[in-house]
Write a protein that binds this DNA or RNA. Sequence first.
DNA 1: TTGTATGCGTTATCAT
DNA 2: ATGATAACGCATACAA
Lengths: 338, 338
Amino acid sequence: MKHITIKDIAKKLNVSISTVSRAFNDKYDIRQDTKELILKTAKELGYRPNPMAKKLIQQRSFNIGIVVPEFEKSYFPQVILGAQNVLLEHNYQVLLMQSNESSETERKNVETLVDNMVDGLIISLCSEEENIAYYKQLIAKGLPIVFFNRVIDELEATKVLFDDYKWAFFTTEHLIQQGLKNIIHIAPKKKYSYTNNRISGYKDAMTKHKLVPQKIIYSHLTVEDGEEIATRFIETKNIPDAIFSSNDYCAIGAMRVFKQHGFKIPKDIAFAGFSETQLSEFVDPQLTSVSQPTKLIGKTAAELLLKQIDNKESSIYQTVVLNGNLNIRESSMKVLKL
Amino acid sequence: MKHITIKDIAKKLNVSISTVSRAFNDKYDIRQDTKELILKTAKELGYRPNPMAKKLIQQRSFNIGIVVPEFEKSYFPQVILGAQNVLLEHNYQVLLMQSNESSETERKNVETLVDNMVDGLIISLCSEEENIAYYKQLIAKGLPIVFFNRVIDELEATKVLFDDYKWAFFTTEHLIQQGLKNIIHIAPKKKYSYTNNRISGYKDAMTKHKLVPQKIIYSHLTVEDGEEIATRFIETKNIPDAIFSSNDYCAIGAMRVFKQHGFKIPKDIAFAGFSETQLSEFVDPQLTSVSQPTKLIGKTAAELLLKQIDNKESSIYQTVVLNGNLNIRESSMKVLKL
DNA sequence: TTGTATGCGTTATCAT
DNA sequence: ATGATAACGCATACAA
């Protein structure tokens, strides 16, 4: 694993290492033919500059760190892809780390990335409480960071968000327009900034159409949770008109149990999910869900980060709110209970 | 972004930088109380060793690179997770890169990781042809690499594989045992080492039960491809007893079209997929599929890599073949066409 | 037990 | 236009 260095090239060509170095950095004076000669032999020898040495002296890495809570649930991979495309175009390498939904791991990940002198970070948080002080410190030190999806409200920073309020409102209103009245909302137990926005959207839509009382169930939103919730409804023979779940999994779990008990969807009970997964299209019936512009989120985050890196002086933090789409499918279509 | 260095600590305590350095590396002699003092003030000052400098001098990084073709399709994230767990336990940080199914990007990714002095690599290849020479070179240089899932047969290296032959055989035999005779296999157009193994498994199972001719369709295995294939069968009124697809997506696409045309599954036509995705459980009817031990693949790859890193002398390359499971679901159950 | 000095592979600041 | 040399932050052989 012996690496070729500029020294080797210098020795071979009987020039000084500074000349060799200059050949790779156009900004310096160097005769055209010596430059070409150096570049040529460098290629022959298979020379690759050592980024460690470069980073050490330049105090920057052209690396961007992306930290996400997990990437099994199809949302984050696409965001990452969107960001990576932009960053690669600008010659930044992307270092990806996942925190396994643990703030502790998240902290370690970010520390590693900072230690490795990333030029900037794109982060979706595990928790909104644990590492606030640390992030404040990083931002104060001038490290460019863009938060997305799961952010801390009180943190002054650049953020890329989704208009959860609006789309929860729309979704609820869509269900109401189908003639449904007794609409249940299933919200995540873990509190994120978007949780309340979605709840408010649901509530306001219900209120607007004079539908009270409103019922909210707090859950971890797994498939199993959905199944359990459905079972409870069936046991108590208290069947709502519709269930609007804060993710697809929970909706799908509930749907499955209702189907098994002979309920017709959407006639007997309608469903809507949120932040659409691949599943929504493939379950039977297909699930109405709010889709987020995942790639655009990544792209936007990356662009904002690059902007921040370029004008380090002006530290004005923007918040960009992106639009989504309500994909209306069989699970909530043309119900009209009168 | 001014970082605290050992110099700062040394100055503050009026000791030399080597003493400070020694305080962090137990292997040297150092008085207990000076050590404690140094560690204490280091903590107070918020000192963090600069990994760049460390890497530069130690020629190793405690970083492991993982390179995958993509991570949207639920298979790779879990493998990565499995590997990461093992590696983190051994104090290795994981740098993740995705190649977007492009050998060129893959090459760049690996180069970046190598430049950054990763201590080892875990790779699933985009193509089995493009970068062979490069990988041979890396292995020859002594860089520990473990390949998994998509590997190059002719490359002498450590590999973690799945017994595709066996499970394709089992799956085919399962379909035959359901009384089905005219069984079609849909194989990937792109050739990977596993492609032929699965085809052989299918063929041998058919032959064993004296079922000829066998029909194989080559496809890109997307949902749309599945739909197209199904449409063609229906148009030509030539309906097979069963379709055994080399992935779930294609099977699901085909299933969807057959359902739309009023076919009963599995009565009119049965289905089986491969390398189970989350979808298999959620489509209707649920899809029979071969599940691979994704986390175990990652875990095994990581363990083999660590072993390789530890005994660099002995370069004996192992190939580990892991077992899977055939999850039999509604799409192929109790058909018995007589 | 501690300090001095050297080097890892670069870039950058001087000279020449 | 080029060469010598000092950094960057750390580990380590050697001297004290």
